[in-house]
Amino acid sequence: MHTLGDIAKTINAKLVGDSNIEITGVASSLYANQTQLTYIINSKYKQTLIHSKAGVVILNKDLLINCPTNALVVDNVYLAFAKATHLFKKQTVFYQGIHPSAKINNAKIAPNCIIGKNVAIGNHCIIASNVVIEDNVTIGNYALIQPNVSILQGCSIGDNIVISPGVVIGSEGFGNAQDQQKHWHSIAHLGYVVIGNNVSIGANTTIDRGTIEDTQIHNGVRIDNLVHIAHNVIIEQDSAIAATVTIGGSCTLGKRCMVGGGATITSHVNLADDIIITGASTVDKNLSEQGRYTGFTSISKHQKWKKIQVWLLNLDKIVHYLNIKLKKLKEK
């Protein structure tokens, strides 16, 4: 818990409001309540700001007139938000063995495991050697967690889950803000990872925790080896992800999607239900109609690549146009 005065000093902001108000955490602009901090990056989100119920909003001076609550006014909103998140990050405490507060029921736990404070493990679970389960993690019934898995603080895992060796769940997401000198400042990721029932996760896969809200893996999902799932991704029920796929931050995959090996889904992309992505494809836009999709071209300078893409995507129209022209020439 921090006062607005303390937060303003940390992020070098001008405070418009009561410096003694206490803030307990961070939330998205849509859901922040009167004890939470949020941020508005630009005027695109002005209506969200106008209706904000947050205790304080980090914003720039141009948006101050629209702010109905306390404000922290800065030049670089994203950088200020990055600095503010670290005030609310829970520090990891490492223990030896099993913490006395952990509820392990009848789980079979192999040697050299570390199980943190307030961990809850369901019935009939098997925890192999060298597994690390940090504070406040919950695990359902009939989980099989194989060697060298790390499940980091606050994450939640359902029933009948299989987690293969080397998996990391709840690692810090890749979020950074630059200052005027082009130095990077990390964003503390304060969300968790929530995994449903009947999920399997392949070896050495990493699933990052959410920035503010949670990364979600829904019931029945199958994830192969060496997959990277970034912060705030949502993978819906019964989807399957093959090996070495990369899914960028804040993507949503609908129900029963299948993603072939080596594919890349760039950040902020949404896939509808029943989408199939061919292996090695790159998905860089929303797909709203079910079906099979393929997309990859050879690498080139970005501006040249954009021109090539325009031609490729309109090739059928160009051919149709040329055929009409050719027909007219033959008729002369």
Rank of each mutant, 00 (worst) to 15 (best):
V193K: 01
I139R: 03
G202Q: 07
I169Y: 10
I212T: 07
V167F: 00
G202S: 04
W184E: 13
I223S: 02
G154M: 01
I229M: 08
P165K: 06
S171P: 10
L226N: 08
N197D: 15
A203R: 10
I139T: 05
A188Y: 01
G158C: 00
G196S: 02
V162I: 13
D159M: 00
T138W: 04
V162A: 15
I161Q: 08
N176F: 15
T211A: 15
N160K: 12
N176T: 12
V227H: 11
G173I: 07
V137T: 04
N160E: 12
T211I: 15
V168N: 02
G220E: 02
T206F: 11
T211Y: 10
V194A: 15
P147S: 15
G154E: 01
I187W: 01
I207R: 07
I201C: 02
Q153G: 09
R222W: 14
N225T: 14
G220F: 03
Q178G: 14
L152Q: 12
I212P: 02
P165L: 09
I195W: 09
S171Q: 15
I157W: 01
K182S: 12
G175P: 02
T215K: 02
H183K: 11
I212S: 01
V149H: 05
I195E: 07
D214T: 01
N225Y: 14
E213P: 08
L226G: 06
V194H: 15
A203K: 13
V149K: 02
A177L: 08
S200G: 13
V137C: 05
L226I: 10
I201R: 02
G154C: 03
V227Q: 09
T211E: 09
I201W: 03
V167P: 00
N198T: 05
E213A: 12
